[in-house]
Design a protein around this nucleic acid. Structure first.
Lengths: 374, 374
DNA sequence: CCACTTAAGCAACGGTGTTGCCAAAGCGCA
DNA sequence: TGCGCTTTGGCAACACCGTTGCTTAAGTGG
């Protein structure tokens, strides 16, 4: 790491603290404590950020006998990102500011069956409309500084080059270079990731916990893993394949060809209306996850869960808690429903673009250009 | 991060590359390419390392038409660490040089039942004998620069403060401050960790893969996880609790009180001599792990595995490979026996001390002092 | 009103990696 | 054998990072 990278790193550190502090703001001295830098260094860094329009003063704290601390905050409108959630039958696009707050939203029907090119056509149109702000006057002025587009969709893909591996049920999509297709038409940086990863990243930046799992029960069952504050994608960006975990040796056959997969058991229970059993099965998988990864929190999402949130939280929570008690002494791991509802994935997709600004990319230190402020 | 930390970071980066290169050595220009630093910066850094005795020149490469590249290598004897493996009935202590190579080894019988203080007594004696090099003349001279002692033992514990939580079967050990007990008597830095974590760290520094799982089947069943090159310990250093993963809902009862735990199923199969079934069960758990974490490799170890290595590798490998094929297109994840045999944990324990020198500690950027060279 | 406390900026500084340049050390052709 | 060419690697000057020492700003409390 060289000096420009160091500068970018520290700027990202400060920006992340400003982001976390939100509208309440944070003082220079607190920034110094949290970063381990000297107050003078923080003064210099924040002066640069203010000059670039990324930070601003936001009142002052009460005096403790001397000059009161000046509060600083992130300027949300200093940059925006588009988050795009492509699902089997619907598209959700959001425009988010630097804090991840959604300032505009569009939805459109979609058909994966129509092929990748056709879907990209529709999506590009929606993104253009969203950014130009038709139907939302204040948006267009705020949209200055569009940093890029984050795209989230189901199925395995390669995050690093943005190429799809396989979209279950739609073999025509195999190997489609989604990132370059979007980037070419929009002329913007584009980041592609799995829907579960995007949702988990969005929750992580929301500050729910340092380490947690997001379990998504929709048409399939997948997971997004956040470990030690960073999204974990795995060696080939395939991490989070939670649904085909075997929890019943020689159990009923699953569509994947194996037997006793948690997805098959769970969805079968949902199909026959036995949500308590679905929650119990999901809880067993969640318990496996909690003990294996020693995470702080389990969050549930997806259509099936949203249909009866309480029952799932109760059912999964009971299994996880029972195991924690048996494990002995360990603190209980809470189970809750992920915030964001059916917009969570799109919000997370926007964070795919924003996260690097705050040093929250999954990779620790990319060998490429520093992520800092331009 | 400030300038001294930057310096330490880059020094660690270079040291790690020197370590990886081994006796073959590596040139300054290669170091520059791999680190992203300029050749001149590498020259400065390596000059410091040479002045401190950590690096040395090691011949030169063939010329490609100009001045041939000078090779540099790590000086193994520039520092040593003790690795201590405390098991139920035996103690293994090794003295390792900077490269992790074992230069001396001691074993002694042990009795956990005798209590923590008594065990520490025995262990301290063995470590003193090992370091003073009685019975190995060349060791004592090489042992200059003892960096610390790494201690590995089974059971949950807190890596950050070195306090034991619970040693299964020996309640008298609960809450024993093992790290401070050793540190107080030896006057050396001491690092404590689970045996599986130590073994995994040792394998990671051996360079087997970027992301892998080490599955240890002995008196229990545990795992050590290395993700993206770093040992993953989890939020409360409890990660790797692999044995009480449920893989058979409502299966036979396990000692932990749950039903269908992989440890119970696997050990029951071992007990009745059905190693094929044990391997199949273990394979199911390994397959769950591979798909969830998208790792590159699965390594097996522990007494039960060492008793019939081939059968376990074949059995586990078959299940993992079958799932990879069904998963479609994914590269096959190899399954193998961990190197190191019954000394692997002790070797890994030594690496608990050495790893930070090479920037290979599990935490990305400790807020505390830089880990660099003094 | 003044002493005191706390925050934050200015100026000088030490030390990082970088750039420009030159010496060292080999190859290959005349 | 000699000379030009290529490549490596160190020296010196430099730009820029965070740090230190000090001063100014802006409050509180007696």
């Amino acid at each position: 790491m060289n000096l420009p990278a160091l500068r970018g790193h520290n700027a990202a550190l400060v920006l992340d603290l400003l982001r976390t502090a939100g509208e309440a703001g944070i003082s220079r001295l607190e920034l110094a404590e949290r970063t381990g830098l000297t107050p003078q260094a923080v003064s210099k860094i924040t002066a640069r950020l203010r000059a670039e329009g990324l930070a601003a003063e936001a009142g002052r704290r009460a005096s403790t006998g001397g000059k009161p601390r000046t509060l600083l905050r992130l300027v949300p409108d200093a940059g925006h990102a588009v988050g795009l959630h492509l699902d089997r039958d619907e598209l959700t696009a959001v425009l988010a500011d630097l804090t991840g707050h959604v300032v505009a939203e569009r939805r459109a029907p979609l058909e994966f069956a129509a092929g990748a090119e056709a879907v990209v056509d529709v999506a590009v149109g929606v993104v253009r409309a969203l950014v130009s702000g038709a139907g939302g006057g204040e948006v267009s002025s705020a949209a200055a500084g569009l940093l890029g587009v984050g795209v989230a969709l189901p199925g395995p893909l390669d995050h690093s080059d943005g190429v799809l591996h396989r979209v279950t049920g739609f073999p025509a999509w195999d190997g489609f270079p989604l990132r370059d297709a979007f980037a070419g038409r929009l002329g913007l940086p584009v980041v592609v990731d799995k829907d579960t990863n995007a949702a988990a990243l969005g929750l992580a930046l929301g500050g729910v916990a340092e380490s947690f799992a997001y379990l998504h029960l929709g048409t399939g069952l997948g997971a997004g893993l956040v470990l030690d504050g960073g999204l974990y994608r795995g060696a080939r960006t395939g991490a989070g394949e939670f649904g085909h975990q075997v929890i019943q040796l020689d159990g009923p056959e699953c569509g994947c060809g194996d037997r006793g997969c948690i997805e098959a058991l769970c969805l079968a229970a949902v199909a026959r209306g036995d949500l308590d059993e679905a929650a119990r099965v999901l809880g067993a998988g969640a318990g496996n996850l909690v003990s294996l990864l020693d995470i702080d929190l389990v969050l549930l999402g997806g259509r099936a869960v949203l249909a009866d949130e309480e029952r799932f939280v109760r059912g999964v929570g009971a299994v996880v808690a029972a195991r924690a008690r048996r494990g002995g002494g360990g603190t209980e791991v809470p189970v809750a429903v992920a915030s964001g509802g059916d917009r969570g994935v799109a919000e997370g997709a926007a964070q795919l673009v924003l996260a690097p600004l705050f040093g929250r990319a999954s990779v620790a230190f990319p060998a490429s250009a520093p992520l800092g402020v331009r």
